[in-house]
Design a protein around this nucleic acid. Structure first.
Lengths: 199, 199, 199, 199
DNA sequence: CATGAATGAGTTTTCATTCAT
DNA sequence: GATGAATGAAAACTCATTCAT
């Protein structure tokens, strides 16, 4: 492994360790030593690879966002050819988002943590805003393929993503059964998404 | 002022100070001294009136939830007589929730903080779950007055509240213009709520 | 009750409350409020009746010492007439000390606390020294009635009281069964005390 | 210096600092910062090397007990060969205990502190009980070599150690001159120990 | 006399960060 | 590149004491 890649590997190790830590404790209550222990590294190393504890957080958030963004992009690339029908694509898109994001409990927990951080941290907020904007825009583009009402498409995409995040929040806070949440979303998809788009 | 009322006054002062603090910093980064300074009290007093920092938080959350619950109940009491038509009532109910809760930015910020705390704190989670369950149930009852499909009503109320919380989240995270958010919600109300209910 | 006696009554209440507290926690870990709660008084009153927390302690120690001193003196007064035989008196004296002091577990615990305080507190040490000196002198006088060897009598009394305090310590630290401790002391009395004195 | 030895060195430094502190102030009034100052360390280090203030105390007590236990064991190993006569051994044993323990004023002060702590602290009490039991047993074995009466040997050893601890207490509380205490103990040894054993 | 609100110094403990080895 | 010792700031919490009512 090249020197560069060792560095990258270590950095990823650390970010993944933070991920595991965040499933147990909020960031503020997670110490550098906690993360180091989970990463199997000496805590001094974390300061070698990152400027500060906050720097680790910032990189972690970027990392999570990137991961899901590329997952999405990859999926689009692989599916767009097979799903040429815009309506089918929109449905598949909804399915993907629901399965990979909304119903992913660990991810939901992590994002609630990230939302909170964003509220008080300008940099994190900016990253988050950008990520959500892109997500909404992707949905918007899919909707625009079957609807010419720009205003409606814009609001619909915004509202749809907001709805999914609300569902993700509730599934965690209310400990809703995943099957029931899924059924609810399917129901929603059948009735509303269809109705809306078919307008 | 009587002894009793000094006690109550001080406790309220402290909870309100925490409220102001939470608009600036997350709870974990808010020290007892910070709260005391905002409340204009000696920090020792906070331990005189509350068992611990956590006790302040728990009381604060209860206080916020109670405030909005009673606001809601009061509204229902004052409106239920004038809105005998179930559909009108449901719309008015939606309006109320949107205006007092969803579009209340400070409240939204505070709740994002509370969601995060709930993720890692059983007691807070329980309080939150109870509050949301009651809110959903209230909506459910309103829906049931115009629909006999229990399953649908249940999902609809759950989804509606989740949607509102998603919107509240996005309006804060994306810094969406309040007017636009309001318009979006009105749009939603016009198209979907109506459609759904009239089914 | 006169004003004076109310004062005295309150003071005694407080000292007795401290006594109860000391059976549970060391003085340093006993707060003024703890004592007040046990005494059934407002904690502010403790500062009205005593100069400071330390002042309560000093008065308490004096109080305990006085109580046992007067108990002893009273006993001597009541017994000295019936026990004219010096040897009988010495044995009765030993019995009294063993029963009232050495085997009194609560008292032993309290005195271990007082010893410790005395180590670091000149005033307490002085009080304690005086009390032990008087005790030893009392025993010395009893011994001198049956022995003319002043040096031996002096050492014997000193050693005897030291022994009793060592036994009291061990009965508490080693949780020795009281019956066994008593038997041991009886044994000691039979063999040594007798032997020594009869010399 | 190796890593390991730095650790050990620091820990010893801290325990010795506590020792010095305890000669001046009771443990409860000795702060972590006091100990750190005497040890010449940053107070944060004390929490690096020990879990808590209580952990320091527990280790200190163990350390003191171990030190005297091994001193004793070492002495026995070196003397047992030269003192084959059981009576001589018992006398030498008594001499050793008197010189190293009973007449050691600093040690006596420290132990009065430890007794007090033991009264309210189960762990400390257990350690102390074990140490005294072993000490008593050692004496018991020495006595059994010259006496076949098990019951008497057992009581004698218990009483002898209690006596020595009582003397140690009095020498500190009454500020008895060390020479006089020593003479008293020699006297005791001559008369009683001999008498007892020769029975 | 009695109350309990208020003060402020002091305590243990945690931790991000630095740095010599 | 590692390691772990060291620092120092800051946290929550306790409490003797004072004092207005």
């Amino acid at each position: 492994m090249t020197r560069k890649s060792v560095q990258e590997e270590r950095r990823r190790q650390i970010l993944e360790a933070l991920h595991k830590c965040l499933l147990k404790k909020p960031f503020d209550q997670t110490s550098i030593k906690d993360i180091a222990a989970v990463a199997g590294l000496n805590h001094g190393m974390l300061h070698y690879y990152f400027k500060s504890k906050d720097d680790i957080l910032l990189n972690y958030i970027e990392h999570v966002i990137e991961r899901y963004k590329s997952l999405f992009e990859e999926w689009i690339r692989s599916e767009s050819s097979t799903l040429e029908n815009p309506t089918d694509f929109l449905h598949a898109c909804f399915d993907f988002m629901v399965q990979k994001i909304t119903l992913n409990r660990d991810l939901s927990r992590i994002f609630i943590e990230i939302w909170e951080i964003a509220i008080y941290n300008r940099k994190v907020k900016e990253k988050l805003r950008k990520a959500y904007s892109e997500w909404i825009e992707t949905v918007n583009l899919a909707i625009l393929k079957i609807s010419n009402d720009k205003k409606t498409a814009s609001r619909l995409s915004w509202g749809l993503v907001a709805f999914l995040e609300g569902v993700s929040l509730f599934s965690v806070i209310l400990d809703t059964d995943t099957m029931e949440t899924e059924a609810l979303l399917k129901d929603f998809q059948k009735r509303f998404l269809k109705a809306m788009i078919d307008r």
